[in-house]
Design a protein around this nucleic acid. Structure first.
Lengths: 169, 169, 169, 169
DNA sequence: TTTT
DNA sequence: TTTT
């Protein structure tokens, strides 16, 4: 059924790049989209919209976008649920970006540094329903733009709770 | 900034019509939007997307859509937050419908009955972060044409008070 | 760059199914999309929007949609130009449908009959800049369930001026 | 019915600002939208999409966008027809922009000079099916706030007559 | 928990 | 908490 979203906004912080157990890249980011109208106090509010993007585009996002970057997203609305650490079901609505357009002028774009550019929350399962992490070893030691430890044999240590079934293709 | 969503799906239950203190109609409904692709088990999943619509369109939605109705929505993604009854901040992402299209064939459409069709949760603040309601007293005292009858047990007598040019078809 | 269109409307006539020389299916149809507002005479006008769809979806469109069918389209705006029979350059704007949703209730859907369901303008090049037809050999030998005159020995007369380069993938 | 378009692209030339006989501003511009995929020769083509925008947004477009500007458009597909100077009916498909977003970085934006910035084709009906113009005499005699200065050589003296809250940023 |  |  028809399900289409188009957004233009700015990243509220650096994107987070992770990998599924089978090595597929996923990036998460939040877009601040300023409203075109003002509220009753005359202020222009914003919507803070969570986005997720897969594979090569995920790596591009991680490498070329950072906090404050202007970006366009073409995708679809997705809902999912997971049980949080208190055993409560949490419902999530987010945008799965199928196409991300970088809208920063060329000269303002810098390739992100490997270390720290995509900051995995080490140690302990993140509370967002994704379990991907990049535990142990030398994370992204290879540096450069694309994601080395996708091939890291140690990446499976500890638990992971995302399986390939979660991939949207 | 650009923020646009278009959906086609089916209502998971009857829409809920409420009113702000100043008498503005708001309807909430959830659209089940079937995915166009299947997961790795070969099943076609759905996204359950919360929508909100205001004013005249809210009344039309409450009057002409019900559980199972096929509808299209043109709107924007909105995020907001509120403190739940445990004092915890909850973040909500929903679609503000600016235009709702009824996609049921004509003959399958019936005007909803006033009682029960749009069920305001009386007594106590709803847990969804909206406080609007139109409880007791002189509903819609502020006047205008909007729909006091939503909560009015007598509203079915005689004709309904939506004029023909309010009808979206 | 972002380029996204979503439409819901009714086919103004039966879709036309053709094939490129290499056997790729293409269907053309026009969607009448009623405006949600009225003009100064109080009339509700419509936009008549040309759409094109490729491959399996083209065959589905040809088989399951006909004049009057309600359909949704998710796609992109495309422009192209060609020289008409008076040697004048003509510019065309149309929607390339990437996803077509059938919105007719199940019971009202009938599989189109092969012959006549999708009516190729026989004899002479069509004036729309597509010359596709299904020339030579055993057209559509690969065949399967698709559209009637795909198997029409006469459809090959005249030239074809679409090459595979025109395919959007 | 649902009819929604979102585009991001660059103006192929300066926008053209005109006025209807009753003084309503209209701007036309063409957006070059680069495709996200390449053709079989490996080239990335573009679509050249005609847009039209009304009233205050038309004036903003004329004042703040020029050839090469990056802009986003949220609108709908419109078709219309007119008889050209050879008495032939011409069909036009264009995008009516309901919201235009300026995507150029702040420092790269300059207010267009009045003269030449928005170039009305004086003398003789334009061949595009719009007859509006605002020729000579008392421009914008009907009054209101709309932009006579578009054609007014003196309009640059002192301050520009767009108030700050008209600015889209 | 938010961007310019 | 989900629709056909």
């Amino acid at each position: 059924m028809l399900n289409r979203v188009v957004l233009v906004g700015r990243l509220t912080r650096d994107p987070e790049l992770r990998f599924t157990p089978s090595g597929v890249a996923v990036a998460n980011f939040t877009l601040a989209v300023n409203r075109t109208f003002t509220n009753q106090q005359g202020e222009r509010e914003a919507d803070f919209i969570n986005c997720i993007v897969w594979r090569k585009q995920a790596e591009n996002v991680a490498n070329y976008l950072k906090k404050g970057s202007l970006a366009g997203v073409d995708g679809r609305v997705q809902t999912r649920s997971y049980d949080n650490n208190e055993g409560k079901r949490v419902f999530v609505t987010e945008i799965v970006a199928e196409n991300v357009q970088f809208l920063e002028p060329k000269n303002s774009q810098r390739v992100n540094q490997g270390v720290g550019a995509s900051n995995e929350t080490y140690g302990g399962a993140p509370a967002d329903g994704y379990g991907h992490s990049n535990q142990g070893g030398t994370p992204n030691a290879n540096g450069t733009r694309s994601a080395g430890y996708a091939n890291d044999p140690f990446s499976q240590e500890g638990s992971i709770d995302i399986s390939d079934d979660d991939l949207p293709f």
